[in-house]
Deep mutational scan, measured.
Amino acid sequence: MALNTPQITPTKKITVRAIGEELPRGDYQRCPQCDMLFSLPEINSHQSAYCPRCQAKIRDGRDWSLTRLAAMAFTMLLLMPFAWGEPLLHIWLLGIRIDANVMQGIWQMTKQGDAITGSMVFFCVIGAPLILVTSIAYLWFGNRLGMNLRPVLLMLERLKEWVMLDIYLVGIGVASIKVQDYAHIQAGVGLFSFVALVILTTVTLSHLNVEELWERFYPQRPATRRDEKLRVCLGCHFTGYPDQRGRCPRCHIPLRLRRRHSLQKCWAALLASIVLLLPANLLPISIIYLNGGRQEDTILSGIMSLASSNIAVAGIVFIASILVPFTKVIVMFTLLLSIHFKCQQGLRTRILLLRMVTWIGRWSMLDLFVISLTMSLINRDQILAFTMGPAAFYFGAAVILTILAVEWLDSRLLWDAHESGNARFDD
């Protein structure tokens, strides 16, 4: 018995066209964080690309023209004298008006014999932002004059995390709450300039795509075929072959399989920071003279006294001054041990922890910024005066060393310790 099946006739004509040209192939790229070699397709503007294995951002879609970056830099340069030299806060102490600005706080630190601690604050609040705007201006002028731009481009990517104007702005709020127990506070004209400078700096850093600047100024022929001998440069993120001198053909720094002496430098910085954190938390970090009496505060006791007036601000200072430094030390110690013992479990967790400490590390400088600003506000000789204690130097040095330890660690070593050939990683 035959089955009668109805015929289905399409209502619209289906047209099949042959592909007349070869589909576009992607360029081969190595991930600078996990060293995976993959094919990167062509990316349009405002599109980002991520590593298929570790999800690290390979290409950032946010990109401004150099002219727009230069305009932002010149605007920031105009704001800087007002943000640093004009009063941020006014207080009335014992019937006398006192003005506080950024430069005055750094000068008070240096004047009291601790120039190293003052230079830490100076670099993060004044030096690094000033280098940022002058570097962008150098790129703008240098591109037109045919100057060598490689050193500036190499420095810009590392400079971003040292620009800490946003953290200093939080420190202004913390210092205001600490001082309000002794005097009446009012915002100064410099505060508005400083807030504007923070906003412009944040926007500029978020749109400063150094890798795209490398592509514009020093374009290189990408690798179009897969080759395990391809290496990625950690300076400019170019994937290719080393030249005859073993250097990256684009930025001219040595092109090595792994960062040289990464573990040794990381261990040295980490152990030194552990040693410095002990006096930083045991010795007094601030000293207040009130009517001839002397009151010393460690980091913890200062947080407890701050909690009596504002528990939320005390929580912020606790996280930045105690929780973050010790968390960074514990995480980095764990990561280094996992590399030495070739741990194969929990790779995803370790990668996330490394990215976390990379982002939060700079916030530990908050305590030094609060001390710097408070020193310029309260300084009335023996009637009422505020000065920093010996722990300030140890704390600042420990924070900087932990930042350097994270920067010096080559994250690809975590993958080397893991089993080879993993296309995915999980716990």
Rank of each mutant, 00 (worst) to 15 (best):
A2G: 05
N4H: 07
N4D: 05
P6H: 07
Q7S: 12
T9R: 09
P10F: 06
T11K: 06
K12M: 05
K13V: 07
I14Y: 10
T15M: 09
R17L: 05
A18Y: 06
L23I: 08
P24M: 07
D27I: 06
D27F: 08
D27K: 11
Y28A: 08
Y28H: 09
Q29P: 05
C31I: 00
D35T: 03
S39I: 13
S45A: 07
S45C: 08
H46W: 09
S48P: 03
S48F: 12
A49Q: 05
A49D: 10
K57C: 07
R62L: 06
R62C: 04
W64N: 06
S65Q: 05
S65E: 04
A71L: 05
F74H: 03
T75F: 04
L77P: 06
L78I: 02
M80C: 07
P81Y: 05
A83T: 03
P87D: 05
P87L: 06
L88A: 03
H90A: 10
W92C: 02
G95A: 09
I96F: 03
V102G: 03
M103E: 09
Q104A: 08
Q104S: 08
I106F: 07
M109Y: 02
M109K: 08
D114F: 05
T117G: 04
S119Q: 02
G127V: 03
A128M: 03
L130Q: 10
L132E: 02
S135P: 01
S135E: 01
I136F: 14
I136P: 01
A137I: 05
L139H: 01
G142S: 05
G142T: 07
N143P: 12
R144N: 08
L145I: 13
G146E: 03
N148H: 03
N148K: 04
R150E: 03
V152W: 02
L154D: 02
M155E: 08
E157G: 12
L165F: 05
V170R: 01
S176F: 08
K178L: 00
Q180A: 13
Q180D: 13
H184W: 13
G188I: 05
G188K: 14
V189Q: 08
F192D: 06
F194R: 00
V195C: 12
A196L: 13
T201D: 05
T201A: 09
L205G: 13
H207P: 15
N209K: 12
V210Q: 15
V210F: 15
E211S: 12
E211H: 13
E215N: 12
Q220S: 13
Q220H: 12
Q220N: 14
Q220C: 11
T224R: 13
R225W: 13
D227Q: 11
E228T: 13
R231G: 07
V232H: 14
L234V: 11
G235I: 03
H237P: 04
F238R: 11
R245H: 10
G246C: 12
R247D: 15
P249T: 11
R250F: 04
R250A: 15
I253V: 11
I253S: 10
P254R: 01
L255N: 07
R256K: 09
R256A: 11
R260T: 07
Q264C: 03
K265V: 02
A268R: 01
L271D: 10
S273D: 12
L276F: 14
L278E: 10
L283T: 13
L283F: 06
L283P: 03
I288S: 01
Y289V: 05
L290C: 06
N291Q: 10
G292T: 10
G293N: 08
R294N: 03
Q295E: 04
Q295K: 10
D297I: 04
T298V: 13
S301V: 05
G302M: 01
I303E: 01
S305D: 01
L306K: 00
L306N: 00
S308N: 12
S309P: 09
I311A: 14
V313H: 00
V313C: 09
A314C: 12
A314Q: 10
I316A: 15
F318E: 01
F318N: 09
F318G: 14
S321M: 02
I322S: 10
I322M: 11
T334Y: 15
L335N: 05
I339F: 10
F341N: 12
C343R: 13
C343Q: 15
I351K: 12
R355I: 15
R355M: 13
W359D: 07
W363D: 02
M365L: 04
D367F: 00
F369S: 05
V370C: 05
S372T: 07
L373W: 02
I378K: 00
Q382P: 14
A385L: 07
A385N: 07
T387Q: 06
M388C: 04
A391V: 02
A391Y: 02
F393S: 08
F395I: 06
A397E: 05
A398I: 05
I400D: 06
I400Y: 08
L401P: 07
L401Q: 09
T402L: 00
T402W: 09
I403W: 01
L404C: 13
W408H: 06
D410E: 04
D410V: 00
D410I: 00
R412Y: 00
D416K: 12
A423N: 15
D426T: 08
D427P: 06
